[in-house]
Design a protein around this nucleic acid. Structure first.
Lengths: 217, 217, 217, 217
DNA sequence: TATGAATGAGTCTTCATTCAT
DNA sequence: AATGAATGAAGACTCATTCAT
């Protein structure tokens, strides 16, 4: 059962496509590599503090070649954001597809979200830190996509309230609590680390679900 | 009872003091005003994207006058960080002073923390977004102060586990969950808004305490 | 008699004023010096081919100081254009003020125009060569001012036709002929040269007036 | 009678020939097409402001292919200049061949010149605006060819003075007046427009010839 | 206290051109 | 004939900071 009632979202038609108009496969692969490497550098040094020169060095490219793959620094930043949102939405779709009771869906959402943070710690860092650097349409698009995901979480919470599984609660506020709890892990959850995504997701779900479930009399 | 066992922290000896050696009261007042106004601008436009020129305009100062009060842009950033940490630690001290059972202390910590976020939304935004811009000793000092606060939260959690009020849980991990949940409110909790700090702190405490309390059979 | 019927134009209210908002006299003097020196360099090397670095060198300024006086390279170009148009329009106003028969007015217009070209050969070179580099409002403003002057010439020609002093002729076309004849002197008429403005204006007026005067039977 | 006494000029030996050593006819046709298309783009956007990339797009060529036909951007500019000068000199030769009284020759020179401007408005625009972008030998060669044409005009004027058809006048100065009057039409005379070359040449000749003819007592 | 001119390294981005394929 | 990836110097412009006044 698709609790959110929304259509599963695909990797953004018209976004990457329009920004990077039809090129060879090799070009796309190189571009993706640049995006990933740059995410790392941005995460360590900050978006504004990292110069194009440094990105070129790190990617083993001259300035000209760099701009052969990337239209602008901000487009690069947007691509990193998209990478995160694409993955996050795919996870959310998987949850919607799986269905089940709201409590299970919420737990699964946490699993999926922490999995993304665990697999893309740098991208997520950039995503959560540097979004104010996006401007105009890019900023708007980012805000929209982020809001869409938040609504998914809210929808699960509302479904739980409606079904009587969760206590009466403010879905918006509670969604923010849940998001904060999970997103904040970007500060310390790393792919290389000893802790797996599951190691965190389980206790987080324990806390949060007990916290909102209707107390059994 | 002071659950953390640590000495109440004072407004950072050696920070403001050393960077701004004893000046008149008027000087200090002006400087504080600059710090607060600048926090606002940094929050809206980002630290790196905001130039000294803009800060001067906003503060109604020429460049020379500006540098009469502020040693450097980064020192200004550090001062904003300190403002937040000072307030946060004062709140934590108040909690330690008050004593009481761990559950009450954790709830009160949430009250205090959200109160700071609510009263200093701009400073906190800067605090949570721009800390990577701090370098060397300033970065280290910031990390230390932040870690000190985290330990306070962990200490309360451990006290609750020891006293049997809370379930067995990983104090570090749970502290992060708690911190994330509360800190994340910086995104939407504003002093001007309709929601008060208490409006958020109460339901958050409800969720979190139920989530970690030992289930009564 | 004011043959054009237009109000004498002043040095463009809102142009230089808005682009250079109220500064000290010394600042304005320096700025004017920069504009004049830069006109020289643009005339010799071309607008696009001349870099900011070269302008700095020539003006004995660092890049920062340069931009303290000039908002942008294009604003500098516009300022050069304005310098020319201001002078040209002042001359045209003087002619209108003087009145007299159209033939005398046309001769005087030529005197005034060649005088400007003679005194500001570099500015005029830039004016006639680089106007396509102006964009948006600046391009539009330039086009308007230029058109206003052309209309002055046309008006004198029409007045001569109406008064029976000149033959029947296409005022627009004839104005272009007159303008081309005079403007084109920018290629070789220099202030330093042996030829004075008057040396050219006289024979040009001779040719043109004989060329358009009603043949005496 | 060839009034100038100079040898009819051929399409520049050593220019296209040396820069583009003997290629197939298809190659030459493609090259010419590129030159013409590029003249259009240069006229609209300016030489410096137009990049090789844009020229490639407009000509439907990749960069490699483009450089297969064109040695360098400046050579392309020179080719456009040559196109104009070739046509202009052919016209001048036709006039010399035709012979007749100086007044008729001058009128015919105007016909021919305006015809070129009318047929090649873009090339002429580039010719009159971008010649300062030519460097070294190319600049020199251009100056020489231009001077040669000016001498033809001067020669006709001198012949008229000598024959008593024209008043006493400074041939050099008068030639410049004539050239300015005609060349300046490049600003508004377009092949697509309502006005034909003849429509302009006739009244221009009327003005100029009356202006310099010996007044009949 | 305060001004604002000056510095010059730094910003992102574009350029004409080359060359392996 | 043609592709398009790569070069790296140069483009205009901004920056935090200093200093003579």
């Amino acid at each position: 059962m698709n609790v959110s009632g929304e259509v599963p979202s695909e990797p953004m038609p018209g976004t990457e496509a329009s920004a990077a108009p039809a090129r060879g496969a090799k070009w796309n692969a190189r571009r993706d590599a640049i995006i990933d490497t740059s995410a790392q550098v941005f995460a360590r040094g900050g978006y504004h503090a990292t110069g194009i020169a440094e990105l070129c060095t790190v990617n083993g490219l001259g300035k000209g070649a760099f701009y052969h793959y990337i239209a602008s620094k901000e487009e690069l930043l947007a691509a990193i954001h998209d990478r995160v949102m694409d993955e996050v939405m795919i996870g959310a779709d998987r949850v919607a597809q799986a269905g089940g009771p709201p409590s299970a869906q919420l737990a699964m959402l946490g699993d999926e979200l922490l999995d993304v943070i665990h697999r893309y710690p740098d991208h997520v860092w950039v995503f959560l830190h540097e979004f104010p650097a996006l401007t105009d349409e890019r900023a708007e698009q980012f805000r929209v996509r982020r809001r869409v995901y938040e609504r998914r979480v809210e929808a699960v919470l509302r479904a739980g309230v409606d079904s009587g599984e969760f206590r009466e609660l403010d879905a918006r506020l509670t969604a923010f609590a849940w998001l904060g709890m999970h997103n904040y892990t970007y500060l310390w959850l790393k792919a290389g680390g000893r802790v797996s995504a599951r190691d965190v997701a389980k206790p987080f779900a324990d806390i949060f679900l007990r916290g909102i479930e209707k107390s059994t009399p």
